[in-house]
Amino acid sequence: MIRRIRDHESGRHRPDDEYAELYCRLYGLSEHALFNHTDAETDLGDEIDAMELARRAAASDVGRETLERLEVAVDDLASAYQRTPPTQLLGRVRRHLEYVGRLLDGKKTIAEHRRLLVAGGWLSLLGATCHIDLKQYPAAAARLRTAAQLAHHAEHPEIRAWCLETEAWQALTDGEYHHALVLSQAAQDVAPRSSSAFIQSTGQEGRAWARMGRGIETRAALTRIHQLVSPMPMPDQPEHHYRYDPTKSEAYTVTTLSWLGDPAAVGYARQVLERLESADDGGPRPRRAAAARLDLSLALLSTDEPGEAGHVALQAITSGVLVPSNYWRAKEIIAGVEQRGLAVAEELREAYRELYGPSGQQRPQLGA
Rank of each mutant, 00 (worst) to 15 (best):
Tyr252Arg: 12
Arg14Gly: 05
Thr84Tyr: 08
Ala291Leu: 14
Asp49Thr: 08
Gly283His: 09
His113Arg: 15
Arg25Lys: 15
Tyr327Met: 10
Ala142Asn: 12
Ser30Thr: 13
Arg64Pro: 02
Ser249Phe: 02
Ala186Asn: 10
Arg193Lys: 15
Glu31Leu: 03
Tyr23Met: 11
His241Trp: 09
Arg285Pro: 00
Ser297Lys: 06
Glu41His: 13
Val266Tyr: 03
Ala335Thr: 11
Glu112Thr: 01
Val254Tyr: 02
Leu257Phe: 02
Asp49His: 14
Glu68Ala: 13
Leu342Gln: 10
Tyr27Thr: 14
Phe198Asn: 03
Ala78Gln: 07
Arg4Trp: 08
Ala140Trp: 05
Gln361Ala: 14
Ile225Gln: 02
Ser184Ile: 00
Ala210Phe: 03
Arg64Ser: 14
Met234Lys: 11
Pro263Ser: 05
Leu150Ser: 01
Asp76Ser: 10
Ser258Asn: 04
Thr318His: 00
Ala316Met: 00
Ile48Tyr: 06
Thr166Met: 12
Glu9Ser: 06
Ala20Trp: 03
Gly360Tyr: 00
Gly120Asn: 03
His153Asp: 15
Val272Ala: 09
Pro324Phe: 01
Ala50Asp: 10
Gln185His: 13
Val190Asp: 02
Gln136Cys: 11
Arg219Pro: 09
Gly127Asn: 00
Ser195Phe: 08
Ser359Asp: 15
Ser60Thr: 08
Ala197Ile: 07
Gly261Pro: 00
Gly175Val: 06
Ala73Trp: 03
Leu296Phe: 08
Leu67Tyr: 04
Ser278Gln: 04
His96Arg: 13
Ile317His: 03
Glu71Arg: 11
Leu116Ile: 02
Glu52Thr: 10
Ala187Thr: 01
Thr109Trp: 07
Gln149Met: 13
Ala141Pro: 02
Asn36Gln: 14
Asp281Arg: 10
Gly121Val: 04
Pro286Ile: 00
Glu41Arg: 10
Glu165Arg: 11
Asp43Tyr: 10
Ser79His: 04
Ala33Lys: 10
Leu125Tyr: 03
Gln362Lys: 13
Gly283Lys: 06
Leu276Lys: 05
Glu350Thr: 15
Arg94Ile: 13
Ser60Gln: 12
Ala80His: 09
Lys248Asn: 12
Leu150Arg: 08
Leu257Gln: 01
Thr247Asp: 15
Pro306Trp: 03
Arg243Asp: 09
His152Lys: 11
Arg143Glu: 15
Arg211Gly: 10
Pro284Arg: 03
Gly357Pro: 01
Leu342Cys: 05
Lys248Cys: 04
Leu116Ser: 04
Tyr137Leu: 12
Glu332Val: 05
Val344Gln: 01
Gly341Glu: 03
Leu301Met: 14
Ala269Gly: 07
Leu355Gln: 11
His226Met: 10
Asp17Glu: 15
Trp209Glu: 03
Thr218Asp: 06
His179Pro: 00
Gly341Arg: 05
Trp209Asp: 03
Pro238Asp: 07
Pro284Phe: 06
Gly282Ser: 04
Pro192Lys: 04
Leu296Asp: 01
Ala251Gln: 15
Ala251Leu: 15
Tyr99Asn: 05
Tyr23Pro: 01
